[in-house]
Every structure is written in structure tokens, then in C-alpha cells.
Design a protein around this nucleic acid. Structure first.
Length: 343
DNA sequence: AATTCGGGGGC
DNA sequence: GCCCCAGAATT
């Protein structure tokens, strides 16, 4: 049941949001498809990073049919550099589902929208509340941090089970008249005022309602357990150029960076791989090293540039492309780093 | 419940 | 360095 504190938080937050909200591209629309795109891009990704991608993407695929009919390569090229590339493929699949099952109208119930590929608990609530005004929770990292401070909740927000506490709490204090502004207001507060380090409490519209502020716990909340450190993998990376000026590249299969293209990367403990490509070395030179940090692992690549010839077309694997063709392929950032190094 | 998915910005 | 970001899918 909504108590006095909840009511004050609700009112102060919505009022503050309507006055102070940032002018963001996806705040000029309530088209559920466009809201959907923005929410997928914003998963684990900062607003400032997303803005140019969102603008390019909605221009390239203004309707769900445009996205449904897009080639995977064009899709991934537009996503290049944004990371978590399965988001792009899941989004396209989800759009196809909506076209097939719902006549190209994004459903407006949590049950139906949650069944769509790539739409989890957070994104479901975000689309429902922002595009349709449905009072549903949309709990992300911002929301957990803000609420853990407002209510001095000491549960470990890294544990999946803890999220239910915040979802239940949001369903109580959400503004049923304007769930869009309420949900976005909580996130906006978390992004701009109630930040992880050094929160700007003196500017906070709900400071009077904040248990952590009252108890001097804004620095110790939320409580979040740390995750394990990254594994290291070392590669030799080969930028191989044929006499006609074409480069050897290959497409990654599944898992990490699925469907993106790369120069051959050979784990340093492997040997005799050149047979796979039917290659004869003419000249090879080490040009430097590239390191790249992912969330859960670290790549260290020794970069070689070589002139080669193909000696056995039957064994051919990979694809030889011109510089221009290479520019059309979606390339992961560590591969772009290799290109920059070799110039 | 734990792991796998990218990349960048802030301190 | 370390943290964490408008998380979801898989195991």
C-alpha cells in the first residue's frame, strides 16, 4: 500500500523529471517500435554512446518492416562498435515475431511482450510504461541504486533474487497517472544525480525522503558483491595481403562477436594453421601488439602483416576482400585496432 | 544462481 | 586499475 513517503517520492520525482529531463532523441516519440530500439540499445550502454546509433538506426529502419527485411550484414554494420551484437539479431527476430503474430503492432501486456525475443523484464516494463502508459516496473541498475538508497535496502543488488524486492516496491510507488515519467524519472535521477560515486544529494528532489542520506549511508549503498576477474587469451593476428591487393578475412561463427569479421586470429598455442588457408608465406613482419578488454576476458594480439600467395584453392577457407569491401563488413573493435596499428 | 555476451567513460 | 552502465539468454 502506498504510504506517505511513497507518495512524496512519486510526486517529487515526476515533478522534477518533467522539469529537468534531458532532451533525448527517443523522448520525441511514443512509437513503441522506436522506444523498443532505444531500450535495447540502452541495455548496459550509456545514453551518450547510444544517441548516434539510435539516430542512424531509426533512419535506416524507420518501420518494423524495414528492419525485418534488412540484411544481417547491414544490421550488424549499423550496430558496429555498440557491443553485445546478439541484441541486434534478437531485435530483428523480435520485430519479425511482432509482424507475424500481432500484425506489426507491439503488444501492450507484460505477458505477451515478454514472450518476444530480446525483451526481458526490464525492457518489457520500459516499453509498456513509456510507449503505452501502462503502470509496470522497469528495474535497471539505476532503479536498484536509487531505491536501495531511498529505503536503505541492504540486500546485495548483484544477486538476481534481490531484483524482485525493487520490482515489488516500484509497483507500489509508481505513478499510475504517468508511469512513463515516473519510471524515466527514477532512471534519470540515477543517471544524473543519484550516481554510483559522489551522488549530488544537494540537488536531489527526493533528498528529504532518502533514508541513506538521513543515515549517512549514501556512500555505502547500494551493496553490491564484486565479480571475478577476467581471463587472458593471447593470439597471433595475421593481416595477410595477396598479390592482387586483397586481404584475408573470416567470419566468426557463434558466441563472442558472432557473425562479425576478423583477420585470422590464431591462439598462440596452435600451429600449422596456414594449411587451412592454402597459404605460402612470402614476407611477414610483426608490426606491434593490440590489447582489448571485454567484460569477462582480455585479448592480447601480436599483429603481423604479411604478403602471401594462395597455393591450394581447394583448401581455401575465409574470404579475400578489397579494402573497400572490408569497410562494408562489421568489424569488432579489436580488429579495427589492428587496422589502425598497421597504417 | 552463475556465466556469457562489448565497449567505453569516469575517477 | 576498477566500476558500471535504461540487461537478456543460456547453462
Amino acid at each position: 500500500m502506498l504510504d506517505q513517503k511513497g507518495k512524496e517520492i512519486q510526486q517529487n520525482l515526476v515533478k522534477w523529471y518533467l522539469k529537468e529531463k534531458r532532451d533525448l532523441p527517443w523522448r520525441h516519440t511514443t512509437d513503441p517500435y522506436h522506444i523498443w530500439i532505444s531500450e535495447v540499445m540502452l541495455q548496459q550502454t550509456r545514453v551518450d554512446t547510444v544517441i548516434p546509433y539510435y539516430n542512424r538506426f531509426t533512419k535506416a529502419f524507420p518501420t518494423m518492416h524495414d528492419l525485418a527485411n534488412a540484411e544481417e550484414e547491414e544490421l550488424l554494420k549499423l550496430w558496429e562498435g555498440l557491443g553485445y551484437y546478439s541484441r541486434a539479431r534478437n531485435l530483428q527476430q523480435g520485430v519479425k515475431e511482432v509482424i507475424e503474430l500481432y500484425d506489426a503492432k507491439v503488444p501492450n501486456t507484460r505477458e505477451q511482450i515478454s514472450a518476444i525475443r530480446g525483451i526481458g523484464p526490464y525492457t518489457a516494463g520500459a516499453i509498456l510504461s513509456i510507449a503505452y502508459g501502462v503502470p509496470e516496473h522497469a528495474v535497471d541498475g539505476n532503479v536498484m541504486r536509487v531505491l536501495s538508497r531511498l529505503y536503505a535496502i541492504e540486500e546485495d543488488i548483484a544477486k538476481p533474487k534481490t531484483k524482485k524486492i525493487f520490482e515489488n516496491l516500484i509497483m507500489i510507488i509508481i505513478d499510475k497517472e504517468d508511469p512513463s515519467s515516473f519510471n524515466q524519472g527514477v532512471m534519470e535521477l540515477g543517471a544524473t544525480i543519484c550516481t554510483p560515486g559522489k551522488p549530488k544529494c544537494l540537488l536531489c528532489p527526493v533528498r528529504e525522503q532518502c533514508a541513506a542520506f538521513e543515515q549517512g549511508k549514501t556512500d555505502s549503498l547500494p551493496i553490491k558483491s564484486k565479480k571475478s576477474k577476467v581471463k587472458k587469451i593471447t593470439y597471433n593476428g595475421y593481416m595477410l595481403k595477396r598479390s592482387d591487393g586483397k586481404w584475408l578475412v573470416e567470419q566468426r561463427e557463434e558466441g563472442l562477436l558472432a557473425k562479425l569479421w576478423q583477420y585470422p586470429l590464431i591462439e598462440t598455442n596452435q600451429t600449422n594453421w596456414a594449411d587451412l588457408y592454402g597459404i605460402t608465406w612470402l614476407e611477414v613482419e610483426k608490426v606491434g601488439e593490440v590489447t582489448h578488454l571485454f567484460s569477462h576476458l582480455k585479448w592480447e594480439i601480436e599483429v603481423f602483416v604479411g604478403k602471401v600467395e594462395v597455393k591450394d584453392a581447394e583448401k581455401f577457407a575465409g574470404r579475400w576482400v578489397t579494402e573497400e569491401e572490408l569497410n562494408q563488413l562489421p568489424l569488432p573493435v579489436p580488429i579495427q585496432k589492428m587496422r589502425n596499428l598497421a597504417e
